[in-house]
Design a protein around this nucleic acid. Structure first.
Lengths: 341, 341
DNA sequence: TCCGAGTGCACAAACGATTGCAGCCAACTT
DNA sequence: AAGTTGGCTGCAATCGTTTGTGCACTCGGA
């Protein structure tokens, strides 16, 4: 069974392929008579015509392809964003191409290169580093792109993220409300906007409560991973810093910290309270259930996709750089409790 | 900055575009002199030539696009498979397009339709139902496809899965070894191969141990979800069936069952042992840690991709339908313990 | 010196859709 | 009734590559 082409439809409807093309394309409204349009549409349906996207893309320089770049799909943070983005894009007739860079800059380059060769219409970037060559290149190029979840050093690309500062503030408020005075932050990597933002917000929140920010009270983890969290917390435990609560850079770091605490004979929440970030699946079922900041991941993906679509439709309206921050919510659970010291 | 085209390279090298094309394509080895090839390659590098995949695809009827269809990316079962597949495919110069059908047949049709319009070179299907129109259509069509994780009623498509039967057998052996005689199976949906296979293997394993399979001892859940597991387990608890152990169709069902057990005042593992399937992230950190069957998800994805690539390279060698089953491993943890009755 | 084989390259036709342009016919105006 | 307008449709070029065909040139042998 051969694929049916435009020319087949045209023949069946007794018109020229060009006319058939116009009849089937919605924007050419009045260029074709209603009667002819009807005949063509009917023929197309009868034959099961599906336009060849490659050919169309070649001619129109539009591929209807959107590339989404994530560092690691197996990190549960990303699938909901992917999902949100895909729903918006596919409704608009675009196809989402997901690429996993495995946290590797070289892989990322290669993937993006390949996608651009396909005439990809736009990019959703979730891998941004604070100083990121790729982001810079995309900002300089003509192809629209939107950063999501992680921002980058000021540039001309729109960004969709969430309100990290308020999330951190609520977490700190919560801990202080429980009586904690010695709170430590196990920060995420400082070459990511989330890592920087949360650390900065942490310092700010402490000051708001009139608490001093001592040396060694903000400790940077090597990565957003359980292992890195464990190591950072182990170093913390073997230092002279006193603390009754930990604000982790994200849930994975929190998990690592919990392991380290258990290893050191400290109980949670009796001895140390722990707050995470992201609300990954199942962290609410742990013992103790993790208190954490919930992010609207699905909405972030959807909104980023929407903004990208707008930018594609109307490249002129670049205007002011859009920064969209979505609201977050603190989920209070078992891993935080009243300070006993 | 305009994209540099083949004709630019040809001009720079002082040859005809056709010649340049041959010089840059590796298979046309001797059709072009070494000297000319060198000149063309150098020019291409100097200008930063990147071939237009659309144009190439249009001419060669090859898109170097592979579609992977999953029911729900946010289910942690799939990302590792996606990752494994992508690594293999991207190494071979293919781009993976992920589509999430949201467990909806209509969405699935639309997505696959759209991908075929793009001239997708092959499909990896992880959504197969036992009787699946889409699978049947793909099997009848000319485009290569490989089923992964879930099989379908006999057809002519290769399948990559894992050795469910052995996994179930090991789980049952383990439970019987702990002294359990009354084991219940909360089976997954019976319109999936995994659901059927595991249920059938469960019955078989019980018989191997000389245990009768009574009525109500295999209960089908409406979905592979926590909610469905909770409901099925609640029904079980309110029935007259006695049991000291549960083999769940997968981890989500196991989680639901655990919740239901707690609600009914039964402790795990003291009163009831529970075994899951899949070994999702974090289930090893629950209290109790879930005993479950570990699947080589990454390898499944990679192998499926490899088989698909072979099928694309050499469509003739369809030959016998390949069924590849990868080995599984039982991870014994805290949710199973000695029978006390 | 001339011919046959063989190599290396240029030419142009595809692939399938879109779109500017031109022509045709009908209807309307004067 | 002839001219003009305007609405539809057909024609053909075009997007950037690949590839079948054929020409020209070289080289070796007779």
């Amino acid at each position: 069974m051969e694929r049916v082409k435009l020319i087949d439809v045209a023949r069946a409807a007794g018109v020229h392929p060009g006319t058939a093309s116009r009849a089937l394309s919605p924007d050419a409204g009045s260029l074709v008579s209603a009667e002819t349009t009807r005949r063509v549409v009917r023929a197309a349906e009868r034959l099961g015509y599906v336009p060849n996207t490659l050919a169309r893309g070649l001619r129109t320089a539009r591929s209807f392809l959107i590339g989404m770049v994530v560092p690691d799909v197996t990190n549960p943070l990303f699938p909901p964003m992917v999902r949100g983005a895909e729903q918006v894009l596919s409704r608009a007739g675009f196809t989402l191409v997901l690429t996993d860079t495995d946290n590797d800059a070289a892989t990322e380059r290669r993937q993006v290169q390949q996608l651009r060769a396909r005439g990809t219409d736009g990019f959703l970037i979730a891998t941004a580093r604070w100083e990121d060559v790729l982001v810079q290149e995309l900002a300089d190029s003509a192809v629209p792109a939107v950063l999501v979840n992680r921002n980058s050093v000021p540039h001309r690309l729109p960004y969709v993220g969430c309100d990290e500062r308020t999330g951190v503030a609520e977490a700190v408020d919560h801990l202080v409300g429980l009586g904690h005075r010695s709170i430590v932050h196990l920060a995420g990597p400082q070459d990511t906007s989330t890592g920087r933002e949360r650390a900065s917000a942490f310092r700010h929140a402490l000051r708001q409560h009139g608490l001093p920010v001592g040396r060694g009270q903000v400790r940077t983890c090597a990565a957003y991973s359980e292992q890195a969290g464990l190591e950072a917390c182990a170093r913390l435990l073997s230092s002279s810093v006193e603390f009754t609560a930990i604000l982790a850079g994200n849930d994975l770091i929190a998990l690592g910290a919990l392991t380290a605490l258990v290893g050191a004979g400290r109980r949670c929440p009796e001895d140390v309270s722990v707050v995470g970030f992201n609300d990954l699946p199942l962290v609410d079922k742990l013992t103790p259930a993790l208190t954490t900041v919930t992010l609207p991941l699905h909405e972030m993906g959807a909104l980023a996709a929407q903004i990208l679509l707008n930018a594609i439709d109307d490249p002129g309206r670049a205007g002011p750089v859009a920064q969209s921050l979505l609201g977050v919510k603190l989920a209070v659970r078992g891993s935080t409790g009243a300070c006993r010291k």
